[in-house]
Design a protein around this nucleic acid. Sequence first.
DNA 1: GCGAACTGGGTACAGTGTTCGCAATAACGA
DNA 2: TCGTTATTGCGAACACTGTACCCAGTTCGC
Lengths: 240, 240
Amino acid sequence: MPSNDQSPLWLRPEQGTRGPKPAHTRRDVALAAIRIADADGLDAVSMRRVAAELGAGTTSLYRYVSKKDEILELMGDEVLGELRDTELPAGWREALRTIARALREVCLRHPWFANVLAGRAIHGPHSLHWRERTLSAFDGMDLGTDEMLAALGTLSAFVLGHVLGELADREAARRSGLSHDQWMEREGEYGPMIMASGEYPRFTRVMVEAELPHAADRQERGFEAGLDRVLAGIAAHLPA
Amino acid sequence: MPSNDQSPLWLRPEQGTRGPKPAHTRRDVALAAIRIADADGLDAVSMRRVAAELGAGTTSLYRYVSKKDEILELMGDEVLGELRDTELPAGWREALRTIARALREVCLRHPWFANVLAGRAIHGPHSLHWRERTLSAFDGMDLGTDEMLAALGTLSAFVLGHVLGELADREAARRSGLSHDQWMEREGEYGPMIMASGEYPRFTRVMVEAELPHAADRQERGFEAGLDRVLAGIAAHLPA
DNA sequence: GCGAACTGGGTACAGTGTTCGCAATAACGA
DNA sequence: TCGTTATTGCGAACACTGTACCCAGTTCGC
């Protein structure tokens, strides 16, 4: 079965029965691409570069994958595999907290991952495994499925949204080639202009007073603050 | 002042004092790009296409913008301008609800917008105006700035994350060229495989029992369910 | 052993963002 | 008023991109 037919990636057999055995596996492709993305960002993941990393001809990749987009899906599923042995503590609340933190950490470890997740649904085996495990947070609670889906959907939407915000800063600095401090300084140039204009009194007050935006661990604390709120909100909707 | 120097986009004067007046404005560029993105998606926004839409030479765009990325920022800020006359009701809770819904709606109206928002921080005038207005939701409540930032950060992280999930489906169907129903059918092929494997009992139960995923308005209801939870969580952390 | 199914990969093509250079233009200093 | 200088529009060119097409070589089922 050729890889460029129309059936979905994960239903397509990885190799046919007839010809020579493929020299690599889909997983090899994913791992090579991940190495590149971790080192030089998602934009550096081109077919030619992945092929080179793999020691293969460029267009040979199309034996493993029908479009570049499928490489991204393979990468995403592979990274979700890193969550396999995340231990979930007892009690839905702490389990969800662990889920959220684990998801955030894997997004920070692979700064391209959140963008991959944002752009497409991943249906690979690791993704399924992860979904199954997140559902297990509610084991023994006799909850309706819609209630569980709402809780998990809310949680993961928050995590994804927050991590994307965190990475937007970081990646902008990285792409500009400046150090983070230099970049912060450039960004800081907006401040005086905003305050001087007088059009944004509330925003000005926030810039002056707020402690959080200046702290070194502001992202972490912002995440934990949001997580507390999301968990409290989920709790408020669970049957007593 | 040349547009390709290093200073940030919004601090750079739109035109110099010496030479001929520019034939277009930054806003013209943004609007042309938005027309293209609305019609054919973000990938269709290329320098050549934007220039053509504007009736200009391709490289003339670099008189208005130093990188393509800045066009995306202009687009994002322009779209945030559509939120200018969103009326916020009295009471922080309903105000935040309105903010969240307005943000979601603008993301659905311009399906590329959430991805622009996810990838970079926007510092344009409309963005500032919007931030100022969202802060006004807490007017008269005597809240600390960190508390307001946590509330708004949590809310917008949730909205962005949720909308990206919504769009992932929709855009995947669009890109595949199939109708949404045909695409859903393709996706549905995974179902039997998952259930037959027996490895995912909880996930299987969800697929069978859950009402929400099959409803036509599932995205809307999922969003409202999450929003209720986030608001409840924010309420739980406000001083009584 | 024959043919079908499959893999590897080179070539080619249309399209991308961006740099450079140059002619035309308009405001400033003298 | 007349250079001088900053600025604009833009064509040519470059290095890259994803991928369709083709063909030779390999392996299995018959």
